[in-house]
Design a protein around this nucleic acid. Structure first.
Lengths: 336, 336
DNA sequence: TTGAAAGCGTTACCAT
DNA sequence: ATGGTAACGCTTTCAA
């Protein structure tokens, strides 16, 4: 069966094309009988309106662009979950998702926006000085930005509250009586590049601990076993009295726990551990680790909802997803 | 500056809209002077043709749909790399990529195909009895299928040659003199679901070893440390004389190596190890492991090229990517 | 070498 | 309650 057009449906149902169009859009009253016949014809022919033709009339494509992060290397799992959640949210609203990679990012954005291929754009994990942000800002194109870019922007943005998350984890350890806290962060390049989430969370942990009169020390770490071993050694050399650990590196987390075991440091008897990591990672560790979740699903749903609000003419507030701490038994009072 | 249309460009350049169109398409000779003026106007106005309007005339959208696998849980890294490679290939051809998740898969495919939203479809990791395959087959819609579904299909497909890969790894170990070979595969659910890549590779290893007069044993394993420990224990209980290991599970690979070390089995002195895993995983292990690569980049490029061939009216052959073995020193002759 | 105008499939205004 | 038709932005035939 060839592709069907609205004229085919009209002929099949014995009505005009405008009637079919109105049945589809609901933009004017249709008698029950006519509606029934038209819908039957649509079903029989498997008619689906031509997206391009529709888009030139409606000035809507029902497609949104999702622009991937600049550095897809790390955090693949979190990102993939985010993408899947966006897809899911989009489908619920009858929208489709066009995926844009970073290579040639500005040109791709130009094409899809000026070419009326998409109605809006979601930018994942923006860094400082992102040319795409500047372009979209200047175009005034419906856009939601994930993350917190260096220079302030006018585009609506959404981010996880990494500062509050760091403070929450630090406070939890201090409340239990820990005074010497270690922070194990992402790879050193992440800090070198000044990526907001890494720097913000670390600084919040350090400040919270020190403000409460504790001692805070930090190291970055790669994901490999050797990296983790070296980083932990460095950390305990810097402060041998550490009894509480905040691990902000979901890749390294299981290896950190392994290494602690090898070092003869029992969790939580000798050292308490909390993580800033997806629930799935924290839960499946041995032992499970109390954590602040990285709620990629919630962030995806919220950012999509914000984009819809913009498309409806609204101007959503920048939103900041608050952290919540999940207790899993890896934190206890320090031995004295 | 508002969005520009072809009429704006024509006015700006002092020519007709058809002339602008012909400059854009190159479908008829244009005087050098006119071309220069028109191109200058296009640049000045930042004009990009309306994708929808273009698509109804050209009967081409320059968008392809990429349908994600049914089970996005495992192998996220490999899949993400595949997606990125598809994006990259698409951009080189000036095409865009619409991402489809599996939920509501058939309806989504219906919409984008019958709605003329995309020119073609790439289906990732098809399993047995995939309703999307049946639909696309029946529609005769340009499609490339990844993987090897159970029942034979008429759609062009592409797959990595897991049988040859398994045989290659087994042969390599046998050639070195190993006679007792163990195969460590994916999670048990993977086999339960009869996923082609897992079953095919395993069977090829087992058959190759046995045909050559050796003893072959296999286990499945999850990714966690406890799973790996348990699986290896089971494997060596089944055959204590194993001296060669084929690991077909990139997630578990580093943990397998750790565990072997803990068990006091040196690689390659006590046990030789080869992996069916992405180069990146095999290379970064301690020690690096000789491996057959999972060439997701190559598969992405090839499948995209096949889709282009279909769109050009061709009928590409099903293709089967041959394995290559990369030696990294983790295989040696067994001690005697 | 260039322009005018028809037509792609859909929507929405103007009729009846 | 329904139909005819102009218009959306572009490509391509027809004409000059």
């Amino acid at each position: 069966m060839p592709v069907q057009r609205i004229a085919d449906v009209a002929r099949h149902a014995g009505v005009s094309t405008s009637t079919v169009s109105y049945v589809l859009s609901g933009n004017r009253p249709i008698s029950a009988e006519t509606r029934r016949r038209v819908e039957a014809s649509i079903d029989a022919l498997g008619f689906i309106p031509h997206a391009g033709a529709r888009s030139i009339r409606r000035r809507r494509t029902n497609v949104v662009a999702l622009a991937l992060p600049l550095r897809p290397e790390s955090q693949v799992r979190v990102q993939m979950e985010f993408v899947l959640s966006i897809l899911s949210a989009a489908r619920q609203e009858g929208k489709h998702v066009l995926l844009l990679s970073t290579e040639d990012g500005v040109q791709a954005i130009r094409e899809v926006t000026a070419g009326s291929l998409v109605d809006g754009v979601i930018l994942m994990e923006v860094e400082t000085e992102d040319a795409r942000v500047a372009l979209l800002e200047q175009l005034g194109f419906p856009t939601v930005v994930l993350g917190t870019p260096g220079p302030p922007i006018t585009l609506p943005s959404i981010d996880f509250d990494f500062a509050a998350a760091g403070a929450l984890e630090a406070t939890n350890l201090m409340d239990q009586g820990h005074r010497h806290i270690g922070y194990v962060g992402h790879a050193v390049e992440t800090f070198d590049r000044g990526l907001g989430f890494a720097v913000t969370a670390r600084d919040a942990v350090l400040r919270t601990v020190r403000d409460a009169g504790g001692t805070a020390t930090w190291v970055s770490t790669g994901g490999s076993r050797a990296d983790v071993a070296e980083s932990l050694e460095r950390l305990f050399a810097l402060d041998p009295d550490i009894t509480g650990l905040v691990v902000h590196n979901e890749t390294a987390l299981p290896t950190v726990l392994d290494r602690l075991r090898e070092l003869g440091r029992h969790v939580p008897r000798d050292v308490s551990v909390t993580a800033l990591a997806p629930d799935a990672d924290a839960e499946h560790c041995v032992p499970p680790v109390s954590n602040v979740d990285l709620p990629s699903g919630e962030m995806a749903r919220t950012s999509f909802a914000m984009l819809l609000e913009i498309l409806d003419g609204g101007t959503p507030e920048a939103s900041r997803i608050p952290p919540t701490l999940q207790h899993r038994g890896s934190v206890a009072a320090p031995r004295r």
